[in-house]
Simulated assay, not measured.
Amino acid sequence: MTLLIAFATVEGQTAKIARFITDLAKNAGFDAKLINTDETPSHVSLDEVVKVILLAPVHERKHPKSFEALVASNRDALMKRKSLVLSVGLKAAFASGREEARDYLDEMLLRTGFEPNATALIAGAVRPENYGYFEREILQRVVLLGRKIDPREGAREFTDWDELTLIVIEFLGENGRANTLQPQASTQ
C-alpha cells in the first residue's frame, strides 16, 4: 500500500516531522512517498496511493502557499483517499493557543475546499537563530506571552513525538471512519 506524505516547511521542524512519519509508515508496512510541496508541481499523481498525510506549518496565521496550492489543485483526488492533515505550529503547544491554532487549520480547509478524514494540531518548534529582530519580538511578546520561555536561549522543540506516533499509527491502521484527532496541549 502506498502512503503519500506531502509537506511544506519553513524552518525545518515540519520536514523533521515528515521524515519521522515516513519511518513510522515504512515500519507499518507502507510504501511511503515523501514530497516537499515547495519542490513539486502543484498537481501530483495519486495513482496507487491509498492514504495521504498532509502537513504544514503555520506562519503569520497561514500555511505556506505551495502547500495550499497542492491541496486545492488535487482536492478531488485527495478526497477519494483516506487523509490526515497535520497543522504544525507553536500555538498548538499551549492550551491557550489551541483554539486559534484550530482556526488556522479550519481557514486553510475552507480556502482549499478540502475535507480530510482526520485532522490534528501538532506543536512545532522555536528556532530564534532563523529570526530577525521583528520575528523575535513577536515571538517573545505575543506568541510566548506569559510563558517562562526565553527565545534567546536558542532552539526549543515542542513537538510531542509520542503523541504524534499515536496519531499516525491510529490513522495508518484506521478502518476508514471519519474522525478528528485531538492531541492534548502542553501546559508549559
Rank of each mutant, 00 (worst) to 15 (best):
N74D: 05
D160A: 05
R75W: 07
V49F: 09
F158P: 01
R127K: 14
A32I: 02
D103V: 00
E129F: 13
A185S: 15
A123E: 03
P41F: 05
A155Y: 07
T180W: 07
H43Y: 08
S186N: 14
K65S: 13
G113H: 03
G124V: 01
E174G: 14
I167T: 15
A95M: 10
V88D: 11
G12P: 01
N117W: 13
V58W: 04
Q182Y: 07
I53D: 00
E11M: 09
N179V: 12
A15H: 07
E68T: 14
W161V: 12
N27C: 09
K91H: 14
V58C: 12
P116Q: 07
L172H: 02
H59S: 11
W161T: 08
V50D: 12
L4K: 00
T159I: 10
Q13K: 05
T180P: 01
A118T: 08
L46N: 04
A93V: 00
P183E: 06
V143H: 11
F158D: 02
A69N: 13
T37R: 02
I138N: 11
R156A: 08
K16Y: 11
R75F: 05
T187C: 09
D160P: 01
P57F: 07
D150L: 09
G146N: 08
K33P: 01
A56K: 00
D23T: 14
V168Q: 11
R156F: 11
V10E: 13
K148I: 07
F158M: 00
L46F: 09
T180S: 08
V52M: 04
E129M: 09
L144P: 03
D23K: 14
A178S: 14
F7G: 00
R102L: 04
F114N: 01
A69V: 02
A95C: 07
V50I: 09
L86Q: 00
R19A: 11
K91Y: 12
R81M: 01
E39F: 03
E137L: 15
W161P: 10
A72L: 08
D31T: 10
P128Q: 06
V49N: 06
D31S: 11
R81A: 02
P183L: 08
A101K: 01
E170L: 13
A123Q: 04
F114R: 01
A6C: 03
G132I: 10
F158S: 04
S87I: 10
A178Q: 14
L4F: 05
E39C: 02
Q184H: 11
F114E: 00
A155Q: 12
A69E: 13
T112I: 11
I169R: 03
Q140Y: 12
A178I: 12
P64Q: 06
E100P: 01
V142Q: 12
A28G: 04
A32C: 05
T112H: 03
E129S: 14
A77L: 09
F171A: 05
T37S: 04
L46Y: 05
E135Y: 06
T2G: 06
R61V: 08
G132T: 10
V168I: 12
V168L: 10
T165A: 07
S73C: 09
G176V: 13
Q140A: 15
L90H: 04
V142C: 10
T165N: 12
A178H: 13
L181M: 15
E48I: 05
E100C: 00
L55E: 08
A32L: 03
G173S: 12
Y104H: 15
P128S: 13
